[in-house]
Design a protein around this nucleic acid. Structure first.
Lengths: 163, 163
DNA sequence: CGAACTTTTGAAAGAGCTCAATAGAAGTGG
DNA sequence: CCACTTCTATTGAGCTCTTTCAAAAGTTCG
């Protein structure tokens, strides 16, 4: 899944990507800032906010879980914020490391999203993302056997780029 | 107050500015990503996380407040994220509107922070921030009678710039 | 007034964007 | 299986915006 928002100038900002098992859209206020879209076949479990809050009110364990969940979400956002003030190379490196951690098998990451999605996620253009991938490949930090399959060849180099 | 983090390359990223009455640092996880600093004389009330969570476990009203609080924090972060992918002019315009809303008296905003703080908050350099202020003044969107006193002369122009 | 600090301004360099073309992948129908 | 179309990704060249480095102007405080 991806959450996104269309800005007034037509650009699209992606709020985040969600993988199997992830929880998203936990909101306690009424403004729904982002829309959500499936990018692959997806099963979704929907929970009513009022039901969740009511449940948390009765069950301290649920409440605790909920706090932990929003805590993680906040941390993710903060990391994201830090990523967005960096250079294109740092953003792409950070993105790959994030995806490797969340969805990687060994050193191989299958990206479920397009270059355009990545660009809108990182606040870059699709051309810059593509060029940066090529650059990282040239620098032997990654390999790109297929456009959506990335092999991390040198994580410490990526981590170094990530700032 | 400002919260901040020093990146590995020495740059400083400011997490946020907090004004009188604001609550900050509500964390449910153990990683303290940001440090905090007072930039003017400040009185701070400190609440232990464990105490707060325990209280929320007993008092549903407190729990509800806490959810609302983190919800606002999340929304603030999302807006921030949107700001960080925009142009310098959009970032500065957005910053001024935010500050006007939070601390403005009529059309006058007294900025408690330095240009460097603003730059580190917006992910720009101090020179770019300064130039952008000058540009907005030339465009009659704001006036700058003193370097830390901003008069909003044309909010709709700022809002338009804000995207 | 003089020293230290903050802010503004200038000129050149660099990073990323835009526009445009090419290349590659995936699906369709003969 | 191959031509054809469509969609996605890569590459190239020029331009724009932001940064960098440097200097000047304004502020604050002893």
């Amino acid at each position: 899944m991806r959450t996104y928002k269309i800005l007034s100038d037509g650009r699209r900002q992606i709020g985040g990507f969600y993988l199997p098992g992830d929880i998203f859209g936990v909101e306690f206020t009424d403004d729904h800032a982002f829309s959500a879209e499936a990018i692959t076949d997806t099963k979704i479990v929907v929970v009513k906010r009022s039901a969740l809050i009511a449940l948390a009110g009765r069950d301290a364990t649920i409440a605790h879980e909920l706090f932990a969940l929003t805590g993680r979400e906040l941390r993710r956002m903060r990391e994201r914020m830090l990523l967005l003030v960096k250079s294109a190379q740092e953003r792409v490196a950070g993105f790959l490391l994030e995806m490797a951690e969340r969805a990687g098998v060994g050193n191989i990451v299958e990206l479920p999203m397009s270059r355009q999605d990545i660009a809108d996620y990182l606040g870059l253009t699709i051309e810059t993302v593509s060029r940066t991938f090529t650059g990282l490949e040239t620098a032997a930090a990654i390999a790109v056997p297929a456009s959506r399959r990335i092999v991390l060849r040198n994580r410490s180099a990526l981590r170094h780029l990530n700032g």
